[in-house]
């Protein structure tokens, strides 16, 4: 078991023949991901990385039976790419693209709300199920198979947490990079819920940052339904109010979206919150050893 993706996932790459798509598709193949083809409008019929290229996602799904898509399409066309994947019946859509206008994402969220699919991202590093499938841009070599699930808004901070978990002698089931934009397909709570329901996952690391209310929502859910230890960290304890910290969604607007406010709520809901990002791995190891 694992969540969202595994070795049987049939993956297509949207924006397959572009620089980003080509580079990361090769890396994904190298990791062992079952990439069955790709989509670049106008290049249908060609072969790229020994895989077929299709003009439309619909055609790719018909011919390959793909159920997962990863999107490396530039911001002006990314919303369209997400909706095309949803319409074609893709079940898990991972959008890596950073810089999609909020207005487009409002439309996307509405469009996919009554379709049978899950969007991860945008502006995210993707998802990886260790030793099975990497559908993203993370460095695969740092991952080891294990029992810890990771949910994070940030890319490199996810790698940091994973590295610490591995160095603490543990490993990863699935790591989900949910993305740093104001509107994302899978909020923290839903990602935590997926891992909580995964029999293989024994502990969950939840990494958030300033801005928005997703971490608080997830914390309240954990308090009600949590059955496994959760270790949390919120980046941006030292970020000033009103300034955007890199990610489009990382901005303190009011008292509720500061790091301190989120950490307090998470603690009150029974989450082990670490002050220092250097303590994530050890805290997880400690929590898991208590349960043994």
């Amino acid at each position: 078991m694992s969540v969202l993706v595994n070795k049987n996932s049939k993956v297509i790459v949207q924006g397959f023949t572009g620089n980003e798509g080509t580079y990361h598709a090769s890396q994904m193949l190298e990791y062992g991901t079952n990439v069955v083809g790709g989509v670049t409008p106008g290049k249908g019929g060609q072969t790229h990385l020994d895989r077929p290229v299709f003009n439309t996602v619909y055609e790719a799904v018909q011919k390959t039976g793909a159920d997962v898509s990863i999107i490396f399409v530039p911001p002006p066309f990314a919303a369209d790419a997400i909706m095309e994947a949803a319409e074609a019946g893709i079940k898990v859509i991972v959008c890596i693209t950073e810089g999609i206008p909020t207005k487009d994402m409002i439309q996307v969220k509405e469009y996919i709300s009554d379709r049978d699919c899950r969007l991860i991202g945008p502006n995210c590093p993707g998802i990886i199920t260790a030793d099975e499938a990497k559908i993203g841009i993370m460095p695969g070599f740092i991952f080891r198979k294990g029992t810890v699930g990771v949910v994070s808004k940030s890319g490199t901070l996810t790698y940091e947490a994973v590295d610490q978990v591995v160095k603490a002698g543990l490993g990863i089931t699935t790591a989900i990079g949910i993305g740093g934009d104001p509107i994302i397909g899978t909020p923290t709570k839903e990602a935590v819920e997926l891992l909580m329901n995964d029999p293989e996952t024994e502990g969950i690391i939840m990494i958030g940052e300033i801005g928005g209310g997703m971490e608080a929502e997830a914390a309240y859910w954990v308090k009600e339904h949590g059955t496994k230890p959760v270790v949390g960290f919120i980046a941006g304890q030292t970020a000033p109010a009103g300034r955007r910290m890199g990610h489009a969604g990382a901005i303190v607007g009011g008292a509720d979206d500061t790091a301190a406010a989120k950490m307090k709520i998470m603690r009150e809901c029974g989450i082990r919150v670490v002050e220092s990002p250097a303590d994530i791995g050890e805290a997880m190891a400690d929590e898991l050893s208590k349960r043994k």
Partner: peptide
């Protein structure tokens, strides 16, 4: 100087915990 926004914020936090104050993101 950091790569990635989340890790950059986390690095600022580390500086503070180590007794300094971040000069920038």
């Amino acid at each position: 100087m950091v790569n990635g926004a989340g890790l950059a914020m986390a690095t600022m936090d580390i500086i503070k915990l180590a007794g300094g104050e971040p000069a920038n993101f």
